[in-house]
Design a protein around this nucleic acid. Sequence first.
DNA 1: TAGATTGTTAATCGATTAACAATC
DNA 2: TAGATTGTTAATCGATTAACAATC
Lengths: 251, 251
Amino acid sequence: MTPARSRRPSAPTRTERGIPEATVARLPVYLRALTALSDGGIATASSEDLATAAGVNSAKLRKDLSYLGSYGTRGVGYDVEYLRYQIAREIGVTQDWAVVIVGIGNLGHALANYSGFGTRGFRIVALLDADPDLVGEQIGDMEVRDIAELEDIVKTDRVSIGVITTPAGPAQEVCDRLVTAGVTSILNFAPVVLSVPAGVDIRKVDLSIELQILAYHEQRKSGEAALPPVPELPTMNGLPDLPSVGGGVGA
Amino acid sequence: MTPARSRRPSAPTRTERGIPEATVARLPVYLRALTALSDGGIATASSEDLATAAGVNSAKLRKDLSYLGSYGTRGVGYDVEYLRYQIAREIGVTQDWAVVIVGIGNLGHALANYSGFGTRGFRIVALLDADPDLVGEQIGDMEVRDIAELEDIVKTDRVSIGVITTPAGPAQEVCDRLVTAGVTSILNFAPVVLSVPAGVDIRKVDLSIELQILAYHEQRKSGEAALPPVPELPTMNGLPDLPSVGGGVGA
DNA sequence: TAGATTGTTAATCGATTAACAATC
DNA sequence: TAGATTGTTAATCGATTAACAATC
């Protein structure tokens, strides 16, 4: 143990004026909770009230809000409207982001119809598909357009967010085209790992992965006693050249 | 600093034979990558190969797999089929889980049609809706049934997973009914925080939250220079009794 | 003033990562 | 054997939480 061990004291974790990722992911939840309180006619709320509405504990909520500034009043709480605006501004939904949806199958259809598209803050500027039978179809007040128009639309409408609801196959190509055209954020519903250059953000929504995570825990509830601890060898069709197995399942 | 400070040495983090949550969330990704490799006729893969296919780094992948046991061969790699089976078994998708979908709007429709429902491992046993106009409608090989049948179906078919695709309003009530009937895992697409008793797992998929997280980062890319650092007072309609403001946005 | 509640500190916990000994 | 690659250790990093001084 060296005497003056320079253990950098609680590094800032986030870049200047940046906010920890875990906090960023919760800000939209707080925003929604505040909107609900506001709609309910509530003008002031304590961190405890807000935390309950958002489904987190109050210590976490106060810590999260502290990254934005000091928007509360000791002994009183937070002004709902004021805090709501501050969070909306911090997230960036006081402006409107142009969005395209690529792949108008069942899911693309559903998203296109999604009224309000979350809250405000986003504007769907085009629905694109490669299928000529779909092109021209009317969905709400929009018409499905040919994917050939992708580049034009992204450039003309300054689209920054692309939503991919194609099958797995074409997803990477669609992604590449979006990025090349200038899109810098992607929300991917296709069941594939997409690669994007640095500077492009990507988030993934995956039904089957969510279900599998639930299944894991489910198995550990009901199953516990019913399941065999571990089969030495799986009984699957054809398991060519097992790597000398060894059976045991670790400690 | 007390001399013999008992700093519990690297606590096991997980309950006996449990696996860290972050790892559990990645197992389905590995499973999909292995399936893709397998379909591509690849029999053996190194942690590096697998990590690339799954979009993580190889150290993390090896650490994750080490929680399951020792299924690789030093100097060689992993047998794709063997590892795939072991992960599938660990997750619990070698058996079939009965699922109900409640709320057959656009999104419920899309999920009902979702071919294969992920991979295998899940079986949709019913589509439920409260709207009499929807009840009886045929979707694929299933018919929409009345939500009044919820309790019967959950009990009869031993449903353990419920998918909620209703609007926000009825979501908590639907959730309560599912849980009371015996469902112990919920996948929630409704934009509300649901409360469930201990022992019930809940996961949430939320389009508008995902978009807002992207917007936050988007704002920090293009915006940096264009956006004012911070307005002292927001210009929103009616900001009743601001809590003595103070303006400053923290350090 | 007394009571309430924020904003912050510090301890702890959990996740990631690099490095390398073990071993095929 | 020499080369390759796993499984594991230990360091670091990031997130959570409880507690409480500051202060309205």
